[in-house]
Design a protein around this nucleic acid. Sequence first.
DNA 1: TGTTATATATGATGATGATCATCTAATATG
DNA 2: CATATTAGATGATCATCATCATATATAACA
Lengths: 202, 202
Amino acid sequence: MRYPKDHGRQTRRRIVENASYGLRQNGADGLSVVDLMKLADLTHGSFYAYFKSRDALVVEALALAMDRTVAHWLDLMQGLPAEKGFDAVVEAYLSPRHRNNPARGCALPALAADIGRSGPEARRTFAGRLEKMIDIIAGLIPKRSPSDARHAAAGAIATMVGSIVLARAAGDKRLSDALLEAGRQAVRDQTGSATAEASPAD
Amino acid sequence: MRYPKDHGRQTRRRIVENASYGLRQNGADGLSVVDLMKLADLTHGSFYAYFKSRDALVVEALALAMDRTVAHWLDLMQGLPAEKGFDAVVEAYLSPRHRNNPARGCALPALAADIGRSGPEARRTFAGRLEKMIDIIAGLIPKRSPSDARHAAAGAIATMVGSIVLARAAGDKRLSDALLEAGRQAVRDQTGSATAEASPAD
DNA sequence: TGTTATATATGATGATGATCATCTAATATG
DNA sequence: CATATTAGATGATCATCATCATATATAACA
């Protein structure tokens, strides 16, 4: 059937967007092509009209998820001075809400381990966006040379990612909560920032 | 055939041990039962004579891997004063060698994300051993109440895990190396320890 | 030495996987 | 209004999966 002008483009976007949720939830290998298409209310057959392979969709979904996190960070820090912005991002990242919502959360804890086992395309996509994320956090860290700030930003991101990964894996709620709190404290210790209170979400 | 007394037990151990390597390399869902048995030079059929399910083997392999890391840490710190022992563990953990050898490395960066999506049994096994790992690191951190030390230890472990996960995923070698260095610096900043040089391996 | 117990192999089953070829229906364009 | 075009559906292919039933070979034991 001949459909409205860019019906195809919109549908494609819907597939990528829903995949980016589903894959964060279930892992890069956690959903079949049938599952992925079902998320967009489609049957499996047309999949290869949109993507050259399942892997290609995974890469696009990863890129979208990471771009969304970047946008979310920029939104969280908007209008705040650097230090407050940094605290806002950290508090949101290391919140129970973020831990409990992998599908809508940052792709790093959800997918980085899988990307480490993936092909060069996925790794390159990942590396490029991670650099961007490091840049943004580095811009919030005061009193350092640009290079030192990037270093500190990378450390803070690693701490946040590790805390979420471990907090999600720990079956025990007390331990899981303690890991989030330990992560917050560790980031503070790294950057010498003050204690802060901030908003929810990733 | 009737085999030597505990031939079965030894074979079972071989399966679990090889699985613990293979699963760290390829992820908790990355190898089929056929693959897993092939690692122990066996065909697939006898698998269910040893394990009640594939998941049961994953849990055993996870437990073994984590126990080995605990033993390795104790070995690394043996005979050293607390602070030197801590540095030795951190330097070994955040080394290129550990990043490049997931199969023989710590199970946390290799499998924690998968465990977060697994059943309660895997999560409980994971949580129990993670507590042990936190205790060991806490014992190396000076000048704190036991509770503060555990907090700091959890933060340091989270930083190390996040750094390795990201360093493995980053396609770019420069970025990957920078992430390891950033992780080392971050752990130092968290614990106020001095710079250190130490041995390789996980 | 013959029998039995059991470690591992062979092979089957039914589900599910990714990918591809083909069909159909609806709309945009003439 | 007619027709060309194409979004999406149906269905098939062949591979691989976890699990299970059964066979075989051999060492232990009587």
